Simulated assay, not measured.
Amino acid sequence: MSVYRDEKRGTWTVSVYYRDYENEVHRKTKRGFATKREALEWERNFVLLKSRCTGKLFRYFWETYTEDMKPQVRKSTWDAKEHVVRTKILPFFGDMKLDMIKPRDIIKWQNQIAQMKRKDGSDYAASYYKTIQSQLSSIFNHAVRYYDLESNPVKKVLPISGGRPQEFCYWKKEEFEIFISHVPSTSIFYYAFEMLYWCGLREGELFALTLGDFDFNKKTVEINKTFTVVKGEPIISLPKTQSGLRTVTIPESLCNEIEGFVKELQVEEDERIFKASKTQLNLMLQKYAEESGVERIRVHDLRHSHVSLLIHMGFSAVAIGKRVGHKSERITYYYAHLFPGVQEEIADRLDKERREDVGYEAIDIDTI
């Protein structure tokens, strides 16, 4: 009998025979189940695992992983994951047996990935290497957590080395003011850029905004959804993380402008306000950046600019992170290096504090 009760311990035990990828017979014993039902459920899952996953090719387990995880994530998130796996992972690991992949195989794969180039011949960003390795690791973690794979070989190796460092571009307030002065105030793009810069919204959050999200009396906007287009299909979904759900207070002067703007549009309560595409928004950004003579940046860099401005104004990482929907303070602190001269300013202010505390008096070196 494969499932039996341990009278001494008062628990249930599973003892089942199975064949590995070389057709050799092994016995698997698992103890400590509180009920027979739990023991039978584990046995069924284990048999399923041995027949479909461990001991089989990696690409077959990818199919199992897809069945398990695809319904649980946003379509756009899954499409991005699937692209990475299809182009960067399956070509190397697809025909290898899942439980035979060792850390040395991961290192060989890393070396291959590190040699890959983008279409224009440039290196991938170091952050992209991290994303690729994380996707591979998540597949092995799934096998360990739910299909009794002994360990995740990705955890035993270092991250992929190399890649170009991630660059953050941003506009200072003066640069944004020069830029926005060239955008017609009657254009929907004018208000889109204003919301992105002064409220720190993501593009998808901006495009999802409806009239009902605004409270012009309280001068706030509710961020509770995001808009994306996947393979030509418009999709409105919840933000990626719980922290993305937030209420953003709008500067009063901007709030008044937005209120007048939406009144002229005469949109319905649940109708999207900013209906331009990401491509159109980017084209307008580049057009007016060129006309105004400021450095060309991406649309998402307006969000970076907002965070940078708030840091420079002296707001705490907690306050900034809550406003822009960062998942953790660590993400907010990552922006701190964007300010040229900040280290010098810190040193100057510390020097001032030190002089006041110790009564320091400058000495002319020539008089010594």
Results as ranks from 00 to 15, higher is better:
Trp198Gln: 02
Tyr147Ala: 01
Ala125Lys: 15
His300Val: 01
Gln72Lys: 15
Val294Ser: 09
Thr367Gln: 12
Phe274Tyr: 02
Val324Tyr: 09
Glu82Gln: 13
Glu175Phe: 09
Met1Ile: 06
Lys88Thr: 06
Glu174Ile: 12
His312Arg: 15
Ile101Tyr: 04
Ala289Asn: 04
Tyr17Lys: 10
Glu167Gln: 15
Lys240Ile: 03
Asp6Ile: 08
Met195Phe: 06
Glu194His: 05
Trp62Pro: 02
Asn224Gly: 15
Trp12Ser: 10
Val294His: 00
Gln72Cys: 07
Lys102Phe: 11
Lys130Tyr: 02
Lys102Cys: 08
Thr210His: 04
Ser253Cys: 08
Asn152Thr: 07
Thr241Trp: 05
Leu57Gly: 04
Tyr146Cys: 05
Val342Asp: 15
Gly293Asp: 07
Met195Arg: 08
Lys240Asn: 05
Pro103Asp: 11
Leu309Thr: 10
Arg59Phe: 04
Val221Tyr: 06
Ile365Glu: 14
Arg19Val: 01
Ser185His: 14
Ile107Ala: 05
Phe261His: 14
Gly32Met: 02
Glu271Met: 02
Val144Pro: 09
Lys218Phe: 01
Gly244Asn: 08
Ala336Pro: 10
Lys97Gln: 03
Tyr21Pro: 05
Ala114Phe: 09
Lys102Arg: 15
Phe207Lys: 15
Gln112Met: 14
Arg164Asp: 13
Glu194Lys: 13
Ala114Cys: 10
Ala34Met: 03
Asn217Val: 05
Val267Phe: 11
Ala125His: 07
Gly321Ile: 05
